[in-house]
Nucleic acid binder design. Sequence first.
DNA 1: AACCCGGGCGACCATCGGACGCTGGTGCC
DNA 2: GGCACCAGCGTCCGATGGTCGCCCGGGTT
Lengths: 235, 235
Amino acid sequence: RRESAMMMPESIAPVNALNLNSKEPPLLMGAGHSSLTPGLLALAENSSDSEDKRLGKKKQKRRRPKEHGEDGEDRPREHPFIVTEPGEAARGKKNGLDYLFDLYEQCGKFLEQVQQLAREKGEKCPTKVTNQVFRHAKHTGAGYINKPKMRHYVHCYALHCLDIDQSNALRKLYKERGENVGAWRGACYYPLVAMARDNNWDIEGLFNRNEKLRIWYVPTKLRQLCHVEKVKYGE
Amino acid sequence: RRESAMMMPESIAPVNALNLNSKEPPLLMGAGHSSLTPGLLALAENSSDSEDKRLGKKKQKRRRPKEHGEDGEDRPREHPFIVTEPGEAARGKKNGLDYLFDLYEQCGKFLEQVQQLAREKGEKCPTKVTNQVFRHAKHTGAGYINKPKMRHYVHCYALHCLDIDQSNALRKLYKERGENVGAWRGACYYPLVAMARDNNWDIEGLFNRNEKLRIWYVPTKLRQLCHVEKVKYGE
DNA sequence: AACCCGGGCGACCATCGGACGCTGGTGCC
DNA sequence: GGCACCAGCGTCCGATGGTCGCCCGGGTT
């Protein structure tokens, strides 16, 4: 236990063999047998099955069907992301991953503006990308930035920041395999869990130590994955 | 501008002379003429006069008159604080300031417990005294700790942490003069503003650099006082 | 044209940080 | 005992972090 975090240490690569939970990671890093808990992907994150309601978590109300035309300027939604290699432009009505990561950089810039303004006005100065920052971005014309999207891919950006080579290789691999964005996104968790392990399971510290990452909250699911692994495999 | 933060640098001591706002700091540090904006004490904090409503701040609703007997164990409220010198026990049905400061230390302990639990369960680990910590304190038997009280006196504790000598001297002075707790509490702001000035107006940094203080949010009014002073007197 | 996959993001929710002001304990006369 | 003062803290509130799942864009047939 405890080899250096390489591209895809077999001890961390999710696997299908020996998978006790049959409907599982549809396809992940190629060979090797995992020490990573099978079934981890089932952790939270739209586990909208399993009539849970665990401890007072009630089902969200149905959204009102959007009474159309009602004055608003009605921005069309952004094109979906597709898995692209570094430097590769997306074809068709799609956006590439370089663009995704650029959105994170833009948020960093918006945060700096909000911080500058707060300092001038003697108000509380945020250290993270908060609702306020998203609001500022929207009002400043970056209507294509929104909270659910940015939060959704934070861990992908984290991998990009913490190990650009591994991130690039993963993109290439998933692109070659014709995997969709969701699969790539799911795969991004595992190298991060391996890095956390090599950092004494302190994923928070890993984020905080990185200049670009410091401003992003550690996603709940990533924290949970790290916790489950830590409990299962010691120290 | 910029002498060392001594007991009561005359340049920071609030004053009554030259006070443009007549109904003001009822009595503060003795001699000297202030460079501290007169009227600062009127900043927010129960400025419930001045039919303001500044920018959508609506008056709080009246509380329901407490339907008595209703099952609850009905803890009697704590004895009020009085200004005591260091080491002095409060007489009568009163609590002294050593006890007040001890409450802050207790909260620190409760925070550590909450952090330990969070780490074990792989949950988000608070760095500050949050609602969760107050809840934990209450459930653990420290029913005499509550959020409004602790927040109310944070800056007093801050002075105690950052300059024990100045804090002790202020307590002694206010005790001798027979001032009530509210007056002492108000006076605690000014030495802190002076320290902030000597720290490039970074009150947040001042808190964060101190082991004990780091876990407490900077009170809004203290931040505002620092801001007003900074704008008025440069840098 | 019809279909269906999958993912963007509007909107919801528990909880948070923050504060007001009623209530009643307390010392004084 | 009665009264007036004042501060403890129950309770409220806007906004936050976090997420669900509806809706529809887009590629495929």
